[in-house]
Simulated assay, not measured.
Amino acid sequence: MSKMMQVLGELPLERVQLFRDVTRESLQGIVDSCDLREIASGEILLRPESVNHELFILLAGRLRVHLKDLDSDPVATLEPGEVAGELSVLDGKPTSAYVVVDEPGRVMVMPRELVWSLATVSHAAACNLLTILSGRVRQADRTITEQMLRERSFHCYGTVDALTGMHNRYWLNDMLGRMVTRSIRSGTPLAVMMIDIDNFKEFDDSYGHLCGDRAIHTVAQTILDNLRPTVLTARYGGDEFFVAVPGVVVGQALEIAERLREAVAATPIPHSPAPLAPVTVSIGVAGVSSGHGVDDVIAAADAALYRAKALGRNRVSQ
């Protein structure tokens, strides 16, 4: 029995991507010159950075494709009729992925020179190769896009505080440095605030950590609700928050801070069966001056906060 008949016995020609609409006369000699190989589960047909001169046409079984390593999730699976190794065969460059046998079966192995011969004698085969390649490019684009979205999501999770929805200190250190530099270079004012919940440890000890978390969340939401979206806000750590207001001098920032203090003092803490009395905050306000770095700005706001605490808490200080 010829290899052509063997192939036809396993898989109709129209099911093979490369052979679709190709006449049998064009295929006869080429198919008979190919090897038919049994493949076992776990067998590696292609490895990254390896030189490959063969096109694998899957007749039975299933293959999976891994980009990074064999322990990573497969980016694609190949079913009977699909091909593997076409990119490295056509451009002569090392392969870029693992192709591993997922279910045992059989492949037709077509050497590189036969692939080019088929594309030369059959217009349909050449079109099929282009279709296969365009499908690979589209799949690669989807994979890259999905990876970028995942990375953005992970970055977001790495810079956003889960309890408050505010950005965290990691994000603050990066963004505040840019804001300070921009303010000094342009001469545009920038005011900052350090906000701390008064007597938070006593509140946490009295009502428990769950109520403590609710208090932190409530204060954070109150701050966010009373500031413009352009204002930088972050959870500095524990029950402390940091705010940077661009385009505002210290005098204006003191007025904004006072409104925040009043809003927090008027917002009860959610609790069952009845809300708890509002907590209060102390706020230190400082401005950015020439020669200031991020540490200087934070230190100035922190010193102002301690002055507010020393004056009796629940107040704003410069």
Rank of each mutant, 00 (worst) to 15 (best):
T23H: 14
T23W: 07
R24H: 01
R24P: 02
S26K: 13
L27G: 10
L27N: 09
Q28N: 08
G29S: 08
I30L: 13
S33V: 01
C34K: 04
C34S: 03
L36K: 02
E38T: 14
E38M: 03
A40T: 09
G42N: 09
G42R: 08
E43N: 10
E43G: 11
I44P: 01
L45Y: 13
L46V: 14
L46G: 10
L46R: 09
L46A: 06
P48I: 06
E49F: 02
S50W: 01
V51M: 12
V51N: 10
E54N: 12
E54S: 12
I57A: 06
L58M: 13
L58C: 06
L59D: 03
L59N: 05
A60K: 14
G61Y: 04
G61T: 05
R62H: 12
L63T: 06
R64V: 08
V65D: 02
H66N: 15
H66A: 05
L67H: 07
D69R: 00
D69Y: 00
L70S: 02
D71A: 03
S72T: 15
D73Y: 04
L78C: 09
P80R: 07
G81P: 09
A84W: 01
A84R: 02
G85D: 02
G85S: 05
S88C: 01
S88K: 02
